[in-house]
């Protein structure tokens, strides 16, 4: 265990925000689930007791008849905003006094930094470069992430859980979102920051970053494992594999939804459902490629003369 290496990484000024992220994301995840648990208990109680439904104010916070349901923004909200502004200002000033922004040597195109890393918030995408061609990792996947996020309100037709934390009423939506955000985004950022060293090689936390390390890892494309050769056989093999993979993942997901979440399926139109399944399958392909590469050194599923997936 090379603690010096760990400290070098963690204390690098530009990595401090990720240390912060590492603390804040779990904190707020737990906070959200604690609030959700409060609401879920209340929901269960109300489902059990029809009389309570008529009298209860339906928020897990105290309220008595006669209390106003709203408060004045002045001062109740504004004082909190003012306080927040003061605290943020103080924190930023202290942070800025204690820690200097990094400044390396002047830009030098003939001296490549190793590792060459994008800003930390793009390191998840840079990590995807290990698993995908640049046009997918750098252009297509970010576009799909943005379009997929924008599609969420039009796909998620669940009328429950609008404006309050809940887990039990929105398991599928929250599970999918948190998997995407926590695992496929934040975790990849953390891997890209702390795990990927010189040559973008995998260094476990605490392993010394050896700039002379060379990995003699041989990556296979899937068709090579099956002994398929020739441009067109390879093309159709890959196409068939991806098609079959999508069909299996989509089919299993469909069965799962029909069996366990029939109300959700019933509320969605065919277009909504197709889009949702589509995005889900794409997410699973990303997961499959990450696992295939890290666990089985398989790089591409589909090899064509123009691009690889």
């Amino acid at each position: 265990m090379d603690w010096n290496q760990v400290w070098t990484l963690v204390s690098l000024p530009d990595n401090v925000p990720i240390v912060l992220l590492l603390l804040m994301v779990p904190f707020y995840t737990v906070l959200a689930f604690r609030e959700a648990a409060k609401n879920d208990r209340l929901i269960a109680e109300l489902e059990r007791d029809p009389d309570l439904r008529k009298s209860h104010h339906r928020v897990p916070y105290p309220w008595k008849p006669g209390w106003p349901k709203t408060v004045h923004v002045w001062p109740h909200l504004l004082k909190r905003e003012f306080l927040a502004a003061i605290i943020v200002t103080a924190v930023m000033i202290v942070w800025s006094i204690c820690l200097d922004a990094p400044l390396e040597e002047p830009a030098n195109p003939s001296l490549t930094m190793n590792p060459s890393k994008a800003p930390w918030y793009f390191l998840g995408l840079q990590e995807l470069l290990v698993y995908f061609d640049p046009w997918i990792a750098g252009v297509v996947l970010p576009s799909i992430i943005l379009l997929g996020l924008m599609a969420i309100p039009y796909i998620d037709v669940n009328p429950l859980g609008n404006g309050y934390y809940t887990w039990k009423q929105r398991k599928f939506a929250i599970g999918t979102f948190l998997f995407g955000f926590l695992v496929l985004w934040v975790l990849l950022v953390i891997i890209g920051t702390f795990i990927r060293g010189p040559g973008w090689l995998w260094f476990n936390l605490g392993e010394t970053w050896d700039h002379h390390r060379v990995d003699h890892q041989v990556n296979y494309d899937l068709h090579e494992l099956f002994g398929v050769t020739g441009t067109w056989p390879v093309f159709f093999f890959g196409l068939a594999f991806l098609g079959a993979f999508s069909a299996v993942v989509g089919g299993l997901t469909h069965l799962w939804i029909v069996k366990c979440m029939p109300a959700m399926r019933k509320r969605m139109s065919l277009i909504q459902y197709a889009n949702m399944l589509h995005l889900w399958i794409l997410m699973m392909i990303v997961v499959a490629k990450i696992i295939a590469r890290l666990a089985f050194t398989v790089k591409n599923f589909w090899v064509t003369p123009w691009f690889n997936i």
Binding site: P106, N108, P119, D133, P134, G138, V139
Partner: peptide
């Protein structure tokens, strides 16, 4: 800041644009 950090980060970032389908 025009230092090594920014230069290589932006080089890595914009190299992605090279690979844009149709436009790179």
């Amino acid at each position: 800041p025009d230092d090594q950090l920014g230069f290589w980060a932006v080089t890595v970032g914009t190299n992605m644009a090279r690979a844009t389908p149709l436009l790179g």
